[in-house]
Design a protein around this nucleic acid. Structure first.
Length: 480
DNA sequence: TTTTGAGTTGTTCGA
DNA sequence: GTCGAACAACTCAAA
């Protein structure tokens, strides 16, 4: 048997269109596929519980996918550098290939590995594959990173398109010698007591197959009305590809080419497809920003925001997390998140605006909560999304743009389907009062079995005065 | 170097 | 009920 190459799976749990895996399998080389559960190296950026649930099922799917090609996925646990060192020693591998990550901790780890593996005489190679464009290759005419989305995306779209996606390696030779693998179940990635994810497999199919089905289903239908449909949380009008993308079960260029291909066949859908692609563009933008400005996960992108007078109110944060703010659209979103590991994009903006502007809680507290509870928790998207809403980010929302949670609910959940699904105690309240139960006459509340302050909270802040406080807080930045 | 045009997702107010 | 303007400058990117 020839000297093996280790293919180290990370956030790229697929076998198709994976440049590093294709390179490893080329020239008849023997490939040893492995995944390392590393809770040490990421530091504070360790995976949340929802993400671990997804990881379990995604690894199971990847294992099947590899088995179909004839390969056996090796599972190991520990700090990646040490585990790889051992694996190299055990198997005599002379190279480790992987897909590049863009998180600061991952970048540092890759630098370290490059050195330590070289000392063992092992060639460490990183390949692109998780983004459409490499951050080093996208720059303004003066050579600096873009800080505004529109010119960034215009630039990306006007250059060479990303390469066409490739398939799985067609003639890989897989490592066959004995190589111990830990049992996936021994990692205890799934919740047990209680099993809060009991019904999540009805909602999600982690793995490349599930990802491909989501994409197909979207391009077969909802894309035709994407620009409008995407605003309505009760509709199945978005792709829900975000967790699949985060774990790399589908490559962004697969999505790009499927979407542009559709627009080429059906020119009347060009505008909708462009809108959809621009969302992929925001993912791209966030990852590029994180690469160029690694402090974006902790520090406000706009430095003047480091003086922002956040309140740091722990009780308010808890009420928000539990979906007990008294604003139905906010509570619906927070409960959807808690119960399904997901929240509709528009509602993410509404709840984030509420936390940072109505409650004046630092966006980092919200970002931490999302990171722990979202299936699609992604450091780049999450950090940039929160900073955008808070107003401190690149190309951020202007400070006076404060979402009115009542209007947002009335506009985008007209029939109250979303609120009634997630806030069942308000089910019987008529549409007219569904977004503002505190304005309902006593008789209406009684008839709907709503007892404010008992079975549904009164609004924890008054919108008008909260708005004024937020504007005053932002105004105070200018004085400093 | 200077200038110019432009910038995800909203709300409120007054006519 | 509907509509347009104001909100407040500021920074970015390209010419």
């Amino acid at each position: 048997m020839t000297t093996p190459i280790i293919y180290w799976f990370r956030q790229d749990l697929r076998t198709r269109d994976l440049p590093g895996l294709i390179a490893a399998a080329a020239n008849g080389r023997t490939v040893l596929p492995c995944y390392i559960l590393d809770d040490i190296s990421p530091g504070d950026e360790a995976m949340g519980s929802a993400s671990r649930w997804w990881l379990h099922h995604s690894l199971a799917a990847l294992r099947e996918e590899l088995a179909g090609l004839g390969g056996t996925l090796v599972l190991r646990r520990g700090p990646a550098a040490a585990v790889l060192k051992d694996l190299v020693a055990e198997t005599g591998a002379d190279a480790v290939y992987c897909s590049r990550l863009y998180e600061p901790w991952a970048n540092e780890l890759e630098e370290t590995l490059h050195g330590t593996l070289a000392e063992q005489g092992v060639n460490f190679k990183r390949y692109p594959g998780s983004l459409l464009f490499e951050p080093e290759k996208v720059a303004t005419k003066s050579g600096t990173p873009f800080k505004v989305f529109t010119p960034f995306w215009r630039h990306c779209r006007s250059g060479n398109p990303p390469a066409r996606p490739k398939g799985a390696p067609d003639s890989a030779t897989w490592y066959r010698d004995k190589c111990n693998s830990e049992a996936l179940t021994s990692w205890q990635l799934l919740p047990t007591a209680p099993d809060w994810a009991q019904r999540w497999l009805d909602l999600w199919q982690p793995g490349a197959e599930g990802a491909a089905q989501r994409l197909t289903a979207f391009l077969d239908g909802p894309v035709t009305n994407y620009s409008e449909g995407r605003n309505h949380p009760a509709l199945e009008a978005t792709t829900r590809l975000s967790p699949h993308l985060h774990f790399g079960e589908i490559s962004p260029r697969t999505i790009w080419h499927a979407a542009t291909g559709l627009a080429a066949r059906k020119p009347e859908q060009d505008a909708q497809v462009a809108k959809f692609l621009s969302e992929l563009g925001w993912r791209e933008f966030s990852h590029h920003l994180l690469y160029h400005f690694p402090s974006i996960t902790r520090e406000p992108f706009k430095p003047q925001f480091s003086h922002f007078p956040w309140l740091g109110n722990a009780a308010a944060l808890t009420d928000w997390q539990r979906g007990k703010t008294g604003y139905p659209i906010v509570d619906a979103g927070m409960r959807e998140l808690w119960q399904t590991g997901y929240m509709h994009n528009r509602i993410r903006m509404v709840v984030a605006s509420f936390l940072t502007k109505h409650l004046l809680v630092n966006w980092r507290a919200g970002a931490r909560w999302f990171q722990d509870t979202l299936l699609d928790a992604d450091l780049a998207n999450n950090s940039c999304g929160w900073q955008w809403v808070a107003g401190s980010g690149a190309d951020a929302s202007p400070y006076f743009r404060i979402f009115n949670p009542v209007i947002q609910g009335e506009k985008f959940d007209k029939d109250g389907l979303y609120i009634r699904q997630w806030v069942p105690e308000l089910t019987k309240l008529p549409d007219r009062y569904l977004n503002k139960p505190w304005e309902a006459p006593a008789s209406v509340l009684e008839q709907a079995d709503v007892r404010l302050g008992e079975n549904y909270p009164r609004p924890m802040v008054d919108h008008r005065s909260a708005r004024e406080s937020a504007l005053a807080a932002y105004a105070s930045l200018k004085e400093k």
